[in-house]
Nucleic acid binder design. Structure first.
Lengths: 239, 239
DNA sequence: AGAAAATATATTGTATACAATGTCATCAGG
DNA sequence: CCTGATGACATTGTATACAATATATTTTCT
Protein backbone atom coordinates (compact mmCIF):
# COMPACT_ATOMS: atom_id res chain seq x y z
CA UNK A 1 0.00 0.00 0.00
CA UNK A 2 1.37 3.37 -0.96
CA UNK A 3 2.10 6.19 1.36
CA UNK A 4 -0.80 8.30 0.19
CA UNK A 5 -3.20 5.37 0.17
CA UNK A 6 -2.26 4.52 3.72
CA UNK A 7 -2.39 8.11 4.88
CA UNK A 8 -5.76 8.69 3.31
CA UNK A 9 -7.19 5.54 4.88
CA UNK A 10 -5.77 6.47 8.26
CA UNK A 11 -7.03 10.02 8.04
CA UNK A 12 -10.53 8.98 7.05
CA UNK A 13 -10.61 6.40 9.82
CA UNK A 14 -9.53 9.06 12.28
CA UNK A 15 -12.19 11.45 11.00
CA UNK A 16 -14.89 8.87 11.51
CA UNK A 17 -13.57 8.05 14.96
CA UNK A 18 -13.65 11.70 15.91
CA UNK A 19 -17.23 12.02 14.79
CA UNK A 20 -16.65 14.08 11.66
CA UNK A 21 -19.74 12.43 10.18
CA UNK A 22 -23.17 11.83 11.54
CA UNK A 23 -24.22 8.20 11.87
CA UNK A 24 -25.60 7.07 8.53
CA UNK A 25 -24.33 10.15 6.75
CA UNK A 26 -23.50 9.66 3.11
CA UNK A 27 -19.93 10.10 1.92
CA UNK A 28 -19.42 11.28 -1.65
CA UNK A 29 -16.05 10.40 -3.05
CA UNK A 30 -15.33 13.65 -4.83
CA UNK A 31 -16.23 15.81 -1.86
CA UNK A 32 -14.02 13.79 0.45
CA UNK A 33 -11.26 13.75 -2.13
CA UNK A 34 -11.14 17.51 -2.46
CA UNK A 35 -11.49 17.89 1.29
CA UNK A 36 -8.42 15.73 1.80
CA UNK A 37 -6.59 17.25 -1.15
CA UNK A 38 -6.17 14.01 -3.05
CA UNK A 39 -7.82 12.39 -6.04
CA UNK A 40 -10.74 10.03 -5.89
CA UNK A 41 -8.57 6.98 -6.46
CA UNK A 42 -7.05 6.66 -2.99
CA UNK A 43 -10.33 7.71 -1.43
CA UNK A 44 -12.03 4.85 -3.18
CA UNK A 45 -9.75 2.17 -1.84
CA UNK A 46 -9.82 3.80 1.59
CA UNK A 47 -13.59 3.48 1.60
CA UNK A 48 -13.39 -0.13 0.49
CA UNK A 49 -10.95 -0.94 3.27
CA UNK A 50 -12.98 0.87 5.90
CA UNK A 51 -15.99 -1.07 4.70
CA UNK A 52 -14.23 -4.30 5.58
CA UNK A 53 -13.42 -2.80 8.94
CA UNK A 54 -17.08 -2.06 9.45
CA UNK A 55 -16.79 1.71 9.70
CA UNK A 56 -18.71 2.42 6.51
CA UNK A 57 -21.05 0.39 4.38
CA UNK A 58 -21.35 0.62 0.66
CA UNK A 59 -23.95 -0.45 -1.84
CA UNK A 60 -23.11 -0.89 -5.54
CA UNK A 61 -23.44 2.27 -7.61
CA UNK A 62 -24.78 4.15 -4.63
CA UNK A 63 -21.67 4.91 -2.69
CA UNK A 64 -20.88 4.66 0.97
CA UNK A 65 -22.36 5.86 4.21
CA UNK A 66 -20.86 5.78 7.67
CA UNK A 67 -22.12 2.89 9.69
CA UNK A 68 -24.48 3.44 12.58
CA UNK A 69 -24.71 1.03 15.47
CA UNK A 70 -27.18 0.01 18.07
CA UNK A 71 -26.15 -0.47 21.67
CA UNK A 72 -26.63 -4.18 21.12
CA UNK A 73 -24.18 -4.17 18.23
CA UNK A 74 -21.55 -2.65 20.44
CA UNK A 75 -22.37 -5.04 23.23
CA UNK A 76 -21.88 -7.95 20.86
CA UNK A 77 -18.53 -6.61 19.76
CA UNK A 78 -17.39 -6.23 23.36
CA UNK A 79 -18.40 -9.83 23.92
CA UNK A 80 -16.23 -10.99 21.07
CA UNK A 81 -13.38 -8.89 22.27
CA UNK A 82 -13.69 -10.29 25.76
CA UNK A 83 -13.75 -13.84 24.50
CA UNK A 84 -10.66 -13.38 22.35
CA UNK A 85 -8.74 -11.58 25.07
CA UNK A 86 -9.80 -14.29 27.47
CA UNK A 87 -8.27 -16.81 25.12
CA UNK A 88 -5.11 -14.72 24.99
CA UNK A 89 -4.90 -14.58 28.77
CA UNK A 90 -5.32 -18.33 29.05
CA UNK A 91 -2.61 -18.96 26.48
CA UNK A 92 -0.20 -16.64 28.25
CA UNK A 93 -0.85 -18.21 31.62
CA UNK A 94 -0.40 -21.70 30.21
CA UNK A 95 2.72 -20.97 28.21
CA UNK A 96 4.28 -18.91 30.97
CA UNK A 97 4.44 -15.16 31.31
CA UNK A 98 7.54 -13.78 29.54
CA UNK A 99 9.82 -11.63 31.65
CA UNK A 100 9.39 -8.41 29.67
CA UNK A 101 5.64 -8.81 29.52
CA UNK A 102 5.49 -9.25 33.28
CA UNK A 103 7.43 -6.03 33.70
CA UNK A 104 5.22 -4.15 31.26
CA UNK A 105 2.11 -5.31 33.07
CA UNK A 106 3.56 -4.30 36.46
CA UNK A 107 4.33 -0.91 35.00
CA UNK A 108 0.74 -0.57 33.81
CA UNK A 109 -0.58 -1.48 37.22
CA UNK A 110 1.56 1.18 38.85
CA UNK A 111 0.55 3.83 36.37
CA UNK A 112 -3.08 2.91 36.86
CA UNK A 113 -2.80 3.19 40.61
CA UNK A 114 -1.20 6.59 40.32
CA UNK A 115 -3.83 7.87 37.90
CA UNK A 116 -6.65 6.76 40.15
CA UNK A 117 -5.03 8.27 43.22
CA UNK A 118 -4.71 11.58 41.44
CA UNK A 119 -8.19 11.39 40.02
CA UNK A 120 -9.68 10.77 43.44
CA UNK A 121 -7.87 13.77 44.84
CA UNK A 122 -7.93 16.35 42.08
CA UNK A 123 -10.89 15.13 40.11
CA UNK A 124 -9.36 16.02 36.77
CA UNK A 125 -9.99 13.90 33.77
CA UNK A 126 -8.04 10.69 33.40
CA UNK A 127 -7.57 10.48 29.69
CA UNK A 128 -4.18 8.83 30.15
CA UNK A 129 -5.91 5.89 31.78
CA UNK A 130 -7.05 4.84 28.35
CA UNK A 131 -3.52 4.80 27.04
CA UNK A 132 -2.36 2.62 29.90
CA UNK A 133 -5.32 0.31 29.45
CA UNK A 134 -4.48 -0.08 25.80
CA UNK A 135 -0.91 -1.02 26.64
CA UNK A 136 -2.09 -3.51 29.23
CA UNK A 137 -4.37 -5.37 26.90
CA UNK A 138 -1.99 -5.28 23.96
CA UNK A 139 0.84 -6.68 26.06
CA UNK A 140 -1.21 -9.73 26.92
CA UNK A 141 -2.38 -10.34 23.38
CA UNK A 142 1.14 -9.99 22.05
CA UNK A 143 2.49 -12.34 24.67
CA UNK A 144 0.00 -14.96 23.56
CA UNK A 145 2.06 -15.35 20.42
CA UNK A 146 -1.02 -16.16 18.35
CA UNK A 147 -0.88 -14.02 15.24
CA UNK A 148 -4.39 -14.83 14.08
CA UNK A 149 -5.69 -13.75 17.45
CA UNK A 150 -3.79 -10.51 17.19
CA UNK A 151 -5.22 -9.82 13.76
CA UNK A 152 -8.74 -10.61 14.87
CA UNK A 153 -8.47 -8.25 17.80
CA UNK A 154 -6.88 -5.60 15.64
CA UNK A 155 -10.09 -5.67 13.69
CA UNK A 156 -12.33 -5.10 16.67
CA UNK A 157 -9.85 -2.41 17.61
CA UNK A 158 -10.65 -0.54 14.47
CA UNK A 159 -14.23 -0.20 15.63
CA UNK A 160 -13.94 2.88 17.77
CA UNK A 161 -16.45 2.00 20.42
CA UNK A 162 -14.78 -1.24 21.32
CA UNK A 163 -11.40 0.32 21.53
CA UNK A 164 -10.65 0.26 25.24
CA UNK A 165 -9.58 3.84 25.44
CA UNK A 166 -12.80 5.05 23.93
CA UNK A 167 -14.84 3.14 26.42
CA UNK A 168 -12.63 4.31 29.24
CA UNK A 169 -12.34 7.90 28.17
CA UNK A 170 -16.01 8.24 27.63
CA UNK A 171 -17.65 10.31 30.32
CA UNK A 172 -19.73 7.63 31.88
CA UNK A 173 -22.07 8.26 34.75
CA UNK A 174 -19.54 7.02 37.22
CA UNK A 175 -16.09 7.07 35.73
CA UNK A 176 -14.36 6.82 39.07
CA UNK A 177 -16.04 3.58 40.05
CA UNK A 178 -15.48 2.26 36.53
CA UNK A 179 -11.79 2.84 36.71
CA UNK A 180 -11.42 1.45 40.18
CA UNK A 181 -13.16 -1.76 39.26
CA UNK A 182 -11.14 -2.13 36.06
CA UNK A 183 -7.90 -1.50 37.87
CA UNK A 184 -8.73 -4.11 40.48
CA UNK A 185 -9.44 -6.60 37.73
CA UNK A 186 -6.13 -5.79 36.09
CA UNK A 187 -4.40 -6.70 39.35
CA UNK A 188 -6.21 -10.00 39.58
CA UNK A 189 -5.49 -10.84 35.96
CA UNK A 190 -1.78 -10.25 36.41
CA UNK A 191 -1.88 -12.41 39.50
CA UNK A 192 -3.48 -15.25 37.55
CA UNK A 193 -1.01 -14.86 34.69
CA UNK A 194 1.96 -14.97 37.03
CA UNK A 195 0.63 -18.05 38.79
CA UNK A 196 -0.02 -19.82 35.54
CA UNK A 197 -3.75 -20.15 36.27
CA UNK A 198 -5.05 -20.33 32.72
CA UNK A 199 -8.71 -20.96 33.34
CA UNK A 200 -8.86 -18.26 36.02
CA UNK A 201 -7.09 -15.74 33.81
CA UNK A 202 -9.59 -16.44 31.05
CA UNK A 203 -12.57 -16.09 33.35
CA UNK A 204 -11.25 -12.86 34.83
CA UNK A 205 -10.66 -11.36 31.43
CA UNK A 206 -14.19 -12.21 30.35
CA UNK A 207 -15.57 -10.66 33.49
CA UNK A 208 -13.45 -7.62 32.76
CA UNK A 209 -15.20 -7.27 29.42
CA UNK A 210 -18.54 -7.80 31.10
CA UNK A 211 -17.97 -4.69 33.17
CA UNK A 212 -17.40 -2.76 29.97
CA UNK A 213 -20.69 -4.05 28.72
CA UNK A 214 -22.49 -2.92 31.82
CA UNK A 215 -20.96 0.51 31.53
CA UNK A 216 -22.06 0.62 27.93
CA UNK A 217 -25.62 -0.16 28.90
CA UNK A 218 -25.63 2.61 31.47
CA UNK A 219 -24.25 5.02 28.94
CA UNK A 220 -26.72 3.87 26.32
CA UNK A 221 -29.63 4.30 28.66
CA UNK A 222 -28.55 7.76 29.70
CA UNK A 223 -28.21 8.76 26.08
CA UNK A 224 -31.55 7.33 25.11
CA UNK A 225 -33.29 9.07 27.97
CA UNK A 226 -31.72 12.32 26.86
CA UNK A 227 -29.92 12.73 30.15
CA UNK A 228 -26.58 12.85 28.35
CA UNK A 229 -25.96 13.91 24.76
CA UNK A 230 -24.42 11.31 22.49
CA UNK A 231 -20.73 12.01 21.97
CA UNK A 232 -20.04 12.09 18.24
CA UNK A 233 -17.44 9.35 18.53
CA UNK A 234 -20.13 6.86 19.50
CA UNK A 235 -22.29 6.67 16.42
CA UNK A 236 -25.22 5.00 18.04
CA UNK A 237 -28.71 4.98 16.69
CA UNK A 238 -31.48 3.76 18.92
CA UNK A 239 -32.87 0.70 17.25
CA UNK B 1 -18.77 -1.97 -4.22
CA UNK B 2 -19.37 -2.27 -7.91
CA UNK B 3 -20.18 -5.42 -9.71
CA UNK B 4 -16.84 -5.65 -11.41
CA UNK B 5 -14.95 -4.77 -8.27
CA UNK B 6 -16.75 -7.46 -6.34
CA UNK B 7 -16.36 -10.02 -9.09
CA UNK B 8 -12.67 -9.32 -9.47
CA UNK B 9 -12.09 -9.63 -5.74
CA UNK B 10 -14.06 -12.83 -5.58
CA UNK B 11 -12.31 -14.31 -8.58
CA UNK B 12 -8.87 -13.48 -7.27
CA UNK B 13 -9.74 -14.90 -3.88
CA UNK B 14 -10.95 -18.05 -5.56
CA UNK B 15 -7.77 -18.28 -7.61
CA UNK B 16 -5.62 -18.05 -4.53
CA UNK B 17 -7.77 -20.63 -2.76
CA UNK B 18 -7.41 -23.01 -5.66
CA UNK B 19 -3.67 -22.65 -5.60
CA UNK B 20 -3.24 -20.62 -8.78
CA UNK B 21 -0.17 -19.05 -7.20
CA UNK B 22 2.77 -20.52 -5.39
CA UNK B 23 3.22 -19.46 -1.77
CA UNK B 24 5.13 -16.21 -1.73
CA UNK B 25 4.70 -15.68 -5.45
CA UNK B 26 4.64 -12.11 -6.58
CA UNK B 27 1.52 -10.70 -8.20
CA UNK B 28 1.95 -7.92 -10.74
CA UNK B 29 -1.11 -5.80 -11.20
CA UNK B 30 -0.99 -5.44 -14.95
CA UNK B 31 -0.46 -9.15 -15.56
CA UNK B 32 -3.37 -10.06 -13.34
CA UNK B 33 -5.49 -7.33 -14.89
CA UNK B 34 -5.01 -8.59 -18.41
CA UNK B 35 -5.43 -12.16 -17.25
CA UNK B 36 -8.81 -11.26 -15.79
CA UNK B 37 -9.70 -9.01 -18.68
CA UNK B 38 -10.16 -5.88 -16.60
CA UNK B 39 -8.16 -2.76 -15.94
CA UNK B 40 -5.69 -2.31 -13.12
CA UNK B 41 -8.09 -0.22 -11.08
CA UNK B 42 -10.37 -2.98 -9.79
CA UNK B 43 -7.39 -5.30 -9.41
CA UNK B 44 -5.75 -2.79 -7.14
CA UNK B 45 -8.64 -2.55 -4.72
CA UNK B 46 -9.09 -6.31 -4.86
CA UNK B 47 -5.49 -6.73 -3.75
CA UNK B 48 -5.94 -4.19 -0.97
CA UNK B 49 -9.01 -6.02 0.29
CA UNK B 50 -7.36 -9.42 0.10
CA UNK B 51 -4.47 -7.98 2.04
CA UNK B 52 -6.82 -7.16 4.89
CA UNK B 53 -8.12 -10.70 4.64
CA UNK B 54 -4.58 -11.97 4.97
CA UNK B 55 -4.39 -13.73 1.63
CA UNK B 56 -1.74 -11.43 0.18
CA UNK B 57 0.70 -9.02 1.71
CA UNK B 58 1.83 -5.80 0.13
CA UNK B 59 4.77 -3.50 0.70
CA UNK B 60 4.69 0.12 -0.49
CA UNK B 61 5.90 0.62 -4.03
CA UNK B 62 6.79 -3.02 -4.32
CA UNK B 63 3.47 -4.64 -4.92
CA UNK B 64 1.88 -7.71 -3.48
CA UNK B 65 2.78 -11.34 -3.00
CA UNK B 66 0.56 -14.19 -1.93
CA UNK B 67 0.92 -15.00 1.72
CA UNK B 68 2.63 -18.18 2.83
CA UNK B 69 1.86 -19.82 6.14
CA UNK B 70 3.52 -22.12 8.59
CA UNK B 71 1.67 -25.01 10.17
CA UNK B 72 1.73 -23.03 13.41
CA UNK B 73 0.01 -20.08 11.77
CA UNK B 74 -2.80 -22.31 10.67
CA UNK B 75 -2.97 -23.96 14.05
CA UNK B 76 -3.32 -20.54 15.65
CA UNK B 77 -6.13 -19.63 13.30
CA UNK B 78 -7.97 -22.85 14.08
CA UNK B 79 -7.63 -22.00 17.76
CA UNK B 80 -9.25 -18.65 17.23
CA UNK B 81 -11.97 -20.20 15.17
CA UNK B 82 -12.66 -22.79 17.84
CA UNK B 83 -12.83 -20.18 20.55
CA UNK B 84 -15.26 -18.00 18.63
CA UNK B 85 -17.46 -20.91 17.63
CA UNK B 86 -17.36 -22.10 21.22
CA UNK B 87 -18.69 -18.72 22.23
CA UNK B 88 -21.40 -19.00 19.60
CA UNK B 89 -22.42 -22.42 20.87
CA UNK B 90 -22.60 -21.17 24.45
CA UNK B 91 -24.76 -18.22 23.42
CA UNK B 92 -27.12 -20.41 21.48
CA UNK B 93 -27.48 -22.89 24.32
CA UNK B 94 -28.11 -20.08 26.80
CA UNK B 95 -30.57 -18.16 24.69
CA UNK B 96 -32.37 -21.26 23.55
CA UNK B 97 -32.07 -23.10 20.27
CA UNK B 98 -34.46 -21.64 17.69
CA UNK B 99 -36.81 -24.08 16.05
CA UNK B 100 -35.53 -23.74 12.50
CA UNK B 101 -31.91 -23.98 13.62
CA UNK B 102 -32.65 -27.18 15.48
CA UNK B 103 -34.17 -28.62 12.34
CA UNK B 104 -31.24 -27.53 10.20
CA UNK B 105 -28.81 -29.14 12.63
CA UNK B 106 -30.80 -32.36 12.68
CA UNK B 107 -30.75 -32.38 8.92
CA UNK B 108 -26.97 -31.96 8.96
CA UNK B 109 -26.59 -34.84 11.38
CA UNK B 110 -28.63 -37.10 9.16
CA UNK B 111 -26.72 -36.14 6.05
CA UNK B 112 -23.47 -36.72 7.86
CA UNK B 113 -24.53 -40.15 8.98
CA UNK B 114 -25.53 -41.09 5.46
CA UNK B 115 -22.27 -39.85 3.98
CA UNK B 116 -20.20 -41.80 6.46
CA UNK B 117 -22.22 -44.95 5.90
CA UNK B 118 -21.68 -44.69 2.20
CA UNK B 119 -18.02 -43.83 2.59
CA UNK B 120 -17.41 -46.86 4.80
CA UNK B 121 -19.04 -49.12 2.25
CA UNK B 122 -18.02 -47.76 -1.11
CA UNK B 123 -14.89 -45.87 -0.13
CA UNK B 124 -15.56 -43.05 -2.55
CA UNK B 125 -14.56 -39.53 -1.67
CA UNK B 126 -16.80 -37.60 0.67
CA UNK B 127 -16.47 -34.10 -0.66
CA UNK B 128 -20.07 -33.34 0.23
CA UNK B 129 -19.18 -33.83 3.88
CA UNK B 130 -17.46 -30.47 3.78
CA UNK B 131 -20.58 -28.77 2.51
CA UNK B 132 -22.64 -30.26 5.31
CA UNK B 133 -20.02 -29.31 7.86
CA UNK B 134 -20.08 -25.73 6.64
CA UNK B 135 -23.84 -25.60 7.00
CA UNK B 136 -23.66 -27.06 10.48
CA UNK B 137 -21.19 -24.50 11.78
CA UNK B 138 -22.82 -21.57 10.05
CA UNK B 139 -26.21 -22.45 11.47
CA UNK B 140 -24.86 -22.26 15.00
CA UNK B 141 -23.04 -19.00 14.45
CA UNK B 142 -26.09 -17.44 12.85
CA UNK B 143 -28.31 -18.61 15.66
CA UNK B 144 -26.04 -16.89 18.15
CA UNK B 145 -27.39 -13.62 16.85
CA UNK B 146 -24.08 -11.87 17.45
CA UNK B 147 -23.23 -9.93 14.34
CA UNK B 148 -19.70 -9.07 15.39
CA UNK B 149 -19.03 -12.72 15.98
CA UNK B 150 -20.35 -13.58 12.56
CA UNK B 151 -18.12 -10.98 10.95
CA UNK B 152 -15.08 -12.16 12.84
CA UNK B 153 -15.65 -15.73 11.79
CA UNK B 154 -16.33 -14.65 8.24
CA UNK B 155 -12.82 -13.33 8.26
CA UNK B 156 -11.23 -16.56 9.37
CA UNK B 157 -13.46 -18.16 6.80
CA UNK B 158 -11.71 -16.24 4.11
CA UNK B 159 -8.47 -17.94 5.06
CA UNK B 160 -8.79 -21.12 3.09
CA UNK B 161 -7.01 -23.44 5.47
CA UNK B 162 -9.33 -22.67 8.34
CA UNK B 163 -12.40 -23.03 6.28
CA UNK B 164 -13.98 -26.23 7.54
CA UNK B 165 -14.52 -27.75 4.15
CA UNK B 166 -10.88 -27.38 3.22
CA UNK B 167 -9.76 -29.10 6.37
CA UNK B 168 -12.34 -31.79 5.90
CA UNK B 169 -11.87 -32.31 2.20
CA UNK B 170 -8.15 -32.54 2.49
CA UNK B 171 -6.91 -36.05 2.00
CA UNK B 172 -5.67 -36.67 5.46
CA UNK B 173 -3.94 -39.85 6.51
CA UNK B 174 -7.11 -41.20 7.97
CA UNK B 175 -10.09 -39.37 6.59
CA UNK B 176 -12.54 -41.99 7.73
CA UNK B 177 -11.59 -41.75 11.38
CA UNK B 178 -11.53 -37.94 11.08
CA UNK B 179 -15.05 -37.82 9.81
CA UNK B 180 -16.39 -40.30 12.30
CA UNK B 181 -14.95 -38.38 15.22
CA UNK B 182 -16.22 -35.07 13.87
CA UNK B 183 -19.67 -36.47 13.28
CA UNK B 184 -19.83 -37.85 16.81
CA UNK B 185 -18.88 -34.45 18.14
CA UNK B 186 -21.61 -32.85 16.05
CA UNK B 187 -24.11 -35.13 17.73
CA UNK B 188 -22.90 -34.22 21.18
CA UNK B 189 -22.91 -30.53 20.38
CA UNK B 190 -26.51 -30.64 19.20
CA UNK B 191 -27.42 -32.51 22.36
CA UNK B 192 -25.83 -29.81 24.50
CA UNK B 193 -27.52 -27.06 22.53
CA UNK B 194 -30.93 -28.68 22.85
CA UNK B 195 -30.48 -29.18 26.59
CA UNK B 196 -29.36 -25.59 27.08
CA UNK B 197 -26.00 -26.64 28.48
CA UNK B 198 -23.97 -23.57 27.55
CA UNK B 199 -20.66 -24.42 29.19
CA UNK B 200 -20.73 -27.94 27.82
CA UNK B 201 -21.59 -26.76 24.33
CA UNK B 202 -18.68 -24.36 24.44
CA UNK B 203 -16.25 -26.99 25.67
CA UNK B 204 -17.39 -29.47 23.04
CA UNK B 205 -16.99 -26.97 20.27
CA UNK B 206 -13.48 -26.15 21.39
CA UNK B 207 -12.61 -29.80 21.51
CA UNK B 208 -14.07 -30.13 18.05
CA UNK B 209 -11.56 -27.53 16.85
CA UNK B 210 -8.80 -29.31 18.69
CA UNK B 211 -9.38 -32.37 16.58
CA UNK B 212 -8.93 -30.23 13.49
CA UNK B 213 -5.65 -29.04 14.89
CA UNK B 214 -4.46 -32.57 15.48
CA UNK B 215 -5.39 -33.51 11.93
CA UNK B 216 -3.52 -30.47 10.71
CA UNK B 217 -0.40 -31.55 12.54
CA UNK B 218 -0.58 -35.01 11.06
CA UNK B 219 -1.03 -33.53 7.61
CA UNK B 220 1.78 -31.06 8.16
CA UNK B 221 4.16 -33.78 9.29
CA UNK B 222 3.33 -35.99 6.34
CA UNK B 223 3.93 -33.11 3.98
CA UNK B 224 7.19 -32.14 5.60
CA UNK B 225 8.48 -35.69 5.48
CA UNK B 226 7.63 -35.82 1.80
CA UNK B 227 5.23 -38.67 2.33
CA UNK B 228 2.42 -36.61 0.82
CA UNK B 229 2.74 -33.73 -1.63
CA UNK B 230 1.41 -30.38 -0.49
CA UNK B 231 -1.93 -29.65 -2.11
CA UNK B 232 -1.74 -26.23 -3.74
CA UNK B 233 -4.68 -24.97 -1.73
CA UNK B 234 -2.62 -25.21 1.45
CA UNK B 235 0.10 -22.68 0.92
CA UNK B 236 2.36 -23.87 3.67
CA UNK B 237 6.02 -23.15 3.92
CA UNK B 238 8.01 -25.07 6.47
CA UNK B 239 9.34 -22.51 8.90
C1' DA C 1 38.38 -7.23 -14.08
C1' DG C 2 35.75 -5.26 -10.31
C1' DA C 3 33.09 -1.57 -8.21
C1' DA C 4 30.47 2.41 -8.52
C1' DA C 5 27.70 5.49 -11.19
C1' DA C 6 24.43 6.24 -14.68
C1' DT C 7 20.94 4.87 -17.60
C1' DA C 8 17.14 2.00 -19.02
C1' DT C 9 13.22 -0.76 -17.95
C1' DA C 10 9.54 -2.36 -15.34
C1' DT C 11 6.10 -1.68 -11.89
C1' DT C 12 3.58 0.78 -8.73
C1' DG C 13 1.01 5.16 -7.34
C1' DT C 14 -1.99 9.01 -8.61
C1' DA C 15 -4.82 11.81 -11.35
C1' DT C 16 -8.03 12.55 -14.83
C1' DA C 17 -11.22 11.47 -18.55
C1' DC C 18 -15.00 8.95 -19.99
C1' DA C 19 -18.86 5.61 -19.47
C1' DA C 20 -22.57 3.66 -16.76
C1' DT C 21 -25.78 4.12 -13.35
C1' DG C 22 -28.73 6.23 -10.17
C1' DT C 23 -31.35 10.34 -8.50
C1' DC C 24 -34.26 14.09 -8.90
C1' DA C 25 -37.10 17.49 -10.94
C1' DT C 26 -40.11 18.71 -14.55
C1' DC C 27 -43.99 17.85 -17.25
C1' DA C 28 -47.79 15.41 -19.71
C1' DG C 29 -51.86 12.63 -18.96
C1' DG C 30 -55.53 10.86 -16.26
C1' DC D 1 -54.19 16.77 -7.65
C1' DC D 2 -51.96 12.66 -8.18
C1' DT D 3 -49.35 9.19 -11.09
C1' DG D 4 -45.99 7.98 -14.36
C1' DA D 5 -42.72 9.03 -18.01
C1' DT D 6 -38.81 11.85 -19.68
C1' DG D 7 -34.82 14.32 -19.46
C1' DA D 8 -31.11 16.85 -16.80
C1' DC D 9 -27.95 16.30 -13.18
C1' DA D 10 -25.04 14.09 -9.88
C1' DT D 11 -22.31 10.29 -8.53
C1' DT D 12 -20.16 6.09 -8.99
C1' DG D 13 -17.36 2.64 -11.90
C1' DT D 14 -13.67 1.78 -15.17
C1' DA D 15 -9.94 2.68 -18.11
C1' DT D 16 -6.00 5.06 -19.42
C1' DA D 17 -2.30 8.41 -19.16
C1' DC D 18 1.25 10.26 -16.54
C1' DA D 19 4.44 10.56 -12.45
C1' DA D 20 7.22 8.39 -8.93
C1' DT D 21 9.77 4.65 -7.36
C1' DA D 22 12.26 0.39 -7.50
C1' DT D 23 14.96 -2.99 -10.15
C1' DA D 24 18.04 -4.42 -13.75
C1' DT D 25 21.50 -3.33 -17.10
C1' DT D 26 25.14 -0.96 -19.03
C1' DT D 27 28.85 2.14 -18.85
C1' DT D 28 32.87 4.16 -16.91
C1' DC D 29 36.74 4.67 -14.04
C1' DT D 30 40.33 2.79 -11.21
Amino acid sequence: MSSQQARTTARLREMIWNGAFAPGERITESALASALGVSRTPVRVALSLLEQEGLVSGTPNRGFRVEAYSVDDISDAIDVRGTLEGMAARLVAEKGLPRHTAMELRRCLEIGDRIIQKKLVTGDDASDYGEMNERFHCAIVEASGNKALENGLDLTHKLPFVSPQTVAIHESIDTKRQMTVAQTQHWLIVEALENGEGARAEALMREHANVSKQALNVIGASIESGEHPMPPSLRIVTA
